[in-house]
């Protein structure tokens, strides 16, 4: 999946976006996987309450239009 970082998360990790191979079922699981990588990620995701996440899904043409994207109460700063 393509992951895009903003603001201080981007600055702490050091890259604006990257491809991530993951089997995480939730955003929280993905964050835990990333945190385990190294100190930069650990620092970037140290306080999940200060984060906001947007999930943009590319789907098949017949997928019901429930929502274009799902936003969870996550990153911010």
């Amino acid at each position: 999946m393509d992951v895009v970082y903003f603001a201080w998360v981007r600055e702490r990790i050091g890259v604006p976006r990257e491809q991530v191979e993951t089997s995480a079922a939730t955003v929280a699981e993905l964050v835990e996987e990333l945190k385990a990588r190294d100190a930069r990620y650990e620092a970037a995701f140290a306080d999940p309450s200060a984060l906001r996440v947007a999930l943009i899904r590319i789907c098949r043409i017949l997928t019901p239009l429930l929502r274009g994207y799902v936003k969870s109460p996550f990153s911010r700063r």
């Binding site: 895009v4 903003f6 603001a7 947007a54 943009i56 274009g68 994207y69």
Partner: peptide, 9 residues
């Protein structure tokens, strides 16, 4: 800073 792909929407 903003996220162009999402801001307008």
């Amino acid at each position: 800073e903003h996220y162009p792909a999402m801001t307008q929407k």
